[in-house]
Amino acid sequence: MDIVTFAAVVLAASPPIIFAVIGETITEKAGVINLSLDGSILLTAMTAFVVALTTNNLILGCLAGMAVGAAIALIIAFASLTLKQPQVATGFVLTLLCRDLAYVLGNPYSRVPGPQVPHTPIPGLMNLPVIGPILFDQNPVVYLSLVLIVLTWAYMYKTQPGLKLQGLGEKPAATYVRGVNVNRMRYVYTAVGGALVGLGGAAFSLLVKPGWARPYGIEGTGWIALAIVIFGGWRPLRAAAGAYFFVLLQMLANTLQSALPSVPTQVFPTLPFPLMILTLVLVTLGNADWVNRLLNRLPEGVARWLRRTIKALQTSPPAALGTVWEKQ
């Protein structure tokens, strides 16, 4: 496979992860952790497939997935922002609950053939050299994922409300003084993020992995998406890059699988997980005391180089992430 085709294949497989990662980045930027991703994605994938199948309407399927994703996120927002219960606890319970609910409710629709998002190359643009086949010989969902990345970046860093969104997660008190209703806006961004996660689920069952089954075969992806948000340093462009990198590695693992027939095939799908841990160690290493102590002991030249590398990789969460804000 040549590199252009490979890039096109990676892009075609990426929308679910992109939607989930961008959605969660928005939610966490506002200071709320939606830990339920692994369950949310399964439940919304199942919902989107069943609705699209029964109504024979792909858009209704996507909307249903988004509505369910937003509803799950709103439960977390209500439990944490209004009732002051720990976000991680609610999120974790919902992870398991949504997964089981998807299996129970989706049971009658298991392995039923259903509708799929059609392939829609953009005439003219698709004939451009290199970028044509990669970017414009795809389907509406892929185009939407690309637009979403750019829009989210522009909104967050180039607009007034985007600046306030950053404030919600960094310094809610200061944002409140600027006239923002902190909890209401956190509700809004949690719901928006959850809806995007739901769109990610829909992109799985209507495009990348059409249909429904138990197990669906993407179990664990939600946790990877949460890790990519950390790797992405809560910035949409870097998070998107992380998501593409993950899909690329998945593709490479598939290739590796056919090259190494002696290793059991069930081992390959778990390869991303050690990698996830390693990546998280890399991006958080700069926050550890012993690393800084060690660096101080190294010769100046080496230490400076290492420090610069660690600094480039390092990410830190929004300062108020996961905390409850109350008007004094």
Partner: peptide
């Protein structure tokens, strides 16, 4: 039925207790 129904019951119970706990302290 899918055997995950047990998980649904357990999950809903824990979720309900978390939410009720929040309402009580409020």
């Amino acid at each position: 039925l899918d055997s995950s129904l047990g998980g649904v019951i357990q999950g809903l119970l824990v979720l309900a207790v978390l939410i009720v706990g929040g309402i009580r302290s409020r």
